[in-house]
Design a protein around this nucleic acid. Structure first.
Length: 453
DNA sequence: TCTGGGGTCCTAGGACCC
DNA sequence: TCTGGGGTCCTAGGACCC
């Protein structure tokens, strides 16, 4: 813990849904749910309008559909659009201080103490945060964020959560326990359902209850590392530094199938495709790794992993695929698999194999998903399966728009963009040659100015 | 129509070595 | 020949986070 409130935490509000409402004017003020739209999808983000009906992150999309009224938009994610908006926000944070730690696409810590000549008084950081929130809203076309500032990562994160959405809370140094102790223990990072249940069984509901427990009690309850961590957090003791760059530890790819799969040949094609994607991601980041892990989830949701460690690191998709395929054959597919995953860990920056690299191209995965080519695959491609709800499109005659829905050989498109009023809906043939997938729309009136040197 | 996809960190047991 | 402890690596699983 520091003597000054010099750590800032930013959490963008209902981020995916907010970007959708910015880019799709007809959805502003209406319930929007972003996530998996297939039969086994889950909610990634629900807009505040959708939360009012009980839609929540991690809920199955089916459940969210039951809870939300007709007219609610259920959209697949547009990650390129979210990434672009996130990059704009992260750049604004780096204007405050060079020490910025992105936690995820919509969340980051900033060490204001590493900034140049900032006023770190409570009034000073409050003014700074107000200015930051204004600049974020202006630069992102109205996406808001909740800011917390405190003497540690713990307090900054707790503070940003106290007044959502569009909030700003500064915990003055010395006021940590007054804020922390009344809160439920589940607000502490690292207290999930399992730990919360065990804590409740020994009468711990609030952080104050937790602080009354002895260190040996907590270690017995939650293990050595976790127990000592909880003991410290309950006292607002937290000296974790803000870390700008983190090395990746693993790279993986997984997929839940629309229907459970049993056929080893079909699953083998998924293994190859996933290994190819993992291999290209490894090569793109100049990593290679020694341990190949196969993950599978059976029809009854039991999940297991099988792994093998190689003597030397690899980024070769053929090596990854053959190991994963063997692990899959050994594990078996009895009863059917709902999920398959392929990952590589034990990463290092240079592959031994690179010294002897051939000119051979890596297996290319981009063009052929396994489902595209085989009749055993669960969902053969149709004209309408090119389109998914939320997708950006352009029509030669009607202009830019986005896909609302599809079915019966048709696709429904709303023609509007972030800078237009709500636009008209048109239903088109799914194979209309004038309809094309498009890039995410530009939300700013003019292109952003190039960064000044 | 139950339960995504990408990660990180920790624990525990067995193999193996000194 | 027996006993023992410590450290590291590997594998598997689980909790947790966004």
């Amino acid at each position: 813990m520091r003597r000054e409130a010099s750590i800032l935490h930013l959490d963008l509000d209902a981020f995916f849904a907010a970007v959708e409402q910015r880019d799709k004017p007809s959805l502003r003020g209406r319930p929007v749910v972003v996530g998996g739209v297939g039969g086994r999808g889950v909610v990634a983000t629900a807009s505040y309008e959708a939360r009012a009906y009980g839609a929540r992150s991690a809920m199955s999309t089916a459940e969210a559909r039951r809870r939300c009224p007709p007219g609610t938009a259920f959209l697949g994610g547009r990650f390129a659009a979210y990434r672009r908006t996130s990059d704009v926000v992260m750049a604004l944070l780096r204007e405050l201080s060079p020490l910025v730690e992105p936690v995820s696409i919509d969340e980051a810590y900033v060490d204001l103490g590493a900034g140049h000549g900032l006023d770190l008084s409570v009034d000073g950081v409050t003014r700074l945060a107000h200015g930051l929130k204004e600049r974020i809203a202006a630069a992102t076309g109205g996406v808001t964020g909740s800011v917390g500032i405190g003497s540690s990562k713990l307090m900054a994160k707790i503070a940003s959560d106290l007044d959502k959405p569009d909030g700003l809370v500064v915990v003055p140094p010395g006021g940590e326990l007054r804020v922390l102790h009344p809160l439920p223990v589940t607000r502490l990072g690292g207290v999930g359902p399992a730990t919360a249940e065990r804590l409740h069984q020994v009468g711990v509901k609030t952080v104050a209850d937790l602080a009354a427990k002895s260190l040996p009690d907590l270690v017995a309850l939650a293990g050595r590392a976790h127990g000592t961590g909880l003991y410290a957090l309950a006292r607002a003791e937290d000296d974790r530094p803000v870390v700008a760059e983190r090395e990746a530890k693993s790279i993986s790819q997984e997929e839940t199938f629309a229907r459970d799969l049993t056929d080893l040949r079909v699953l083998g094609r998924y293994v190859e495709s996933m290994a190819a994607r993992v291999g290209s991601r490894l090569r793109a980041s100049a990593y290679s790794g020694r341990t190949v892990t196969l993950k599978l989830r059976r029809y009854d949701f039991t999940t297991l992993t099988r792994s093998q460690t190689l003597p030397h690191p690899t980024d070769d998709p053929r090596v990854i695929a053959s190991i994963a395929a063997r692990l899959l054959a050994e594990a078996g597919t009895q009863g059917g698999l709902r999920l398959l995953g392929v990952g590589v860990s034990g990463l290092s920056l240079y592959a031994q194999g690179d010294l002897f690299a051939t000119d051979e191209e890596p297996v290319d995965d981009a063009e052929e998903a396994p489902g595209a080519e085989v009749e055993e695959a669960p969902e053969p491609l149709t004209a309408e399966s090119r389109w998914w709800p939320g997708q950006d499109v352009r029509h030669d005659e009607h202009g830019a728009g986005w896909v609302w829905g599809r079915g019966l050989g048709r696709v429904t498109v709303r023609f509007e963009g972030p800078l237009t009023p709500p636009g008209p809906v048109r239903t088109l043939a799914a194979d209309d040659p004038a309809l094309h997938p498009a890039e995410p729309p530009e939300w700013r009136v003019s292109a952003p100015a190039p960064p000044t040197p």
